[in-house]
Amino acid sequence: MTMVTVRPEEQEAAAAATPEYEKAASRAASRRGLLLALPAYAYLVLFFAVPLGIVMIYSFATRNRFGGTDLSGWNLEAYRKLGDPIVRDILFRSLWLAILTTLICLVVSYPFAYFMATRGPVVRNVMLIFVMIPFWTNFLVRNYAWRVLLGNDGLFTNISEAIGLGERELLFTTSAVMIGLVYGSLPFMVLPLYASIERIDLSLIEASRDLYASGFQTLRRILFPLSMPGVIAGSILVFVPSLGAYVTPEILGGAKTTLLGSYIVTQFLTARNWPVGASLSFVLMAVMLVATVVYFRTGGRNL
């Protein structure tokens, strides 16, 4: 008599089912769900949603003469600053650099990802692991490594001098920033590209060759269109973060190459123009949101 039995005296009162009972039960389940979610929910509202709201409020506020912020009069002054030539230059420079970084990553990654996808399983796995190692190592350190390499007494300069190219100073130029961005972003292009190329039925390429297509035609008309999801996903994963990059330009760039991320930070730390910083942060987030929506729309969910 150890099993749970239906001995009436033991059992909690059970009744016939009614729609009211069903409703009550589903409400109880819903309450349990909410209860589980509540700690994280409350935390995120307090320490994420509220801060986001504060940034929004600040973006409509005015800077006062002492570098403080006047929260009373709401206006679009800070957003109007986006049209300012200095800010516009920074926006365009950031945009241009992000686009260029994305294109370079795509051109470098595509043949690499294709080569990887056509290897045998063992080689493929080894190749993949070696893409992931730099990807998991500390981001700050990876950027710093380039600073060591490109510095004025760094290895790159020494080599360039030794082979007679003269003293080449790359550090603190836009090129250095771009190298850093490409370096940091490359795995994010390689992985989705690889995933989408690997998924393609490679006998399609055979079929294309059988139907008299040249190698290039096959690439253009078969391979590339079919790997489009990976191209889109990779491009967004590279473009969006590059646009808001802060650490890389700070370490590898110079005063003449201020980008959006650094400019925002400057508004808060030195220029003391918080409304402008807040409005730019908001613009950056909007770009990110649009890109994310595009990303999910194109089925990038399970990348």
Binding site: L44, F47, F48, V50, P51, L52, I54, V55, Y58, V240, P241, L243, G244, Y246, L260, G261, I264, V265, F268, W274, G277, A278, S281, F282, L284, M285, M288, L289, T292
Partner: peptide, 16 residues
């Protein structure tokens, strides 16, 4: 919090 740019999140924390 995952998709928001770091700079934006940083600004949020500063102001908050």
């Amino acid at each position: 919090p995952i998709i928001i740019p770091d700079v934006t999140m940083a600004v949020m924390m500063l102001l908050f």
